[in-house]
Amino acid sequence: MAMDRTTLVAEVEKAFGARITEKDLAGFEPFLRCEPATWPELARFLKERCGLDMLCCLTGVDRGKGQGLEAIYNVEACDAKRCGISIRIRVPLDNPVIPSVEKVWQTADWHERECWDLVGIRFEGHHNLVRILCAEDWEGHPLRKDYKSPDRYHGIKNNVV
């Protein structure tokens, strides 16, 4: 059981070695980076071996300038005195696919749907990857940096200013 962040990261590194492609523990938000293919295994490891049983937040970011999209997972333990870690996964804009972890943390179900809806990252293996916030027939992913709000929606003028 990893207690503080250093031990946690050491344990993850021991198990995954070079598959953790980047490590930054100095910033405000310490993170590890991995490839999409590693993620389901890493997620299971974090939950079962490190006791991080809560997926607190899943942020999708469009990094812009040809840097693709990024998913940031904040994984925590229910015992809030313990440290969590954030995992970043970067995917290209033309093929943004990350394996789903809804089987690891149930809450990932809605989070991944939201991330697909707003940022447009496709989560492979999700049982029901449909829009959650926007209307079903909405077009585009609003939080992409190149998104343009539709002029009309169902005949109703949308951009008025």
């Binding site: 916030l133 926007c134 209307a135 909405w138 609003p142 998104y147 709000s149 539709p150 109703i156 003028k157 949308n158 008025v160 200013v161």
Partner: peptide, 19 residues
Amino acid sequence: SGGPYIKHGYHVLKGVDRI
């Protein structure tokens, strides 16, 4: 009129008098 969401609120109806 859409209130604070009038400019950037892509998913907000700009005034209920439109429907």
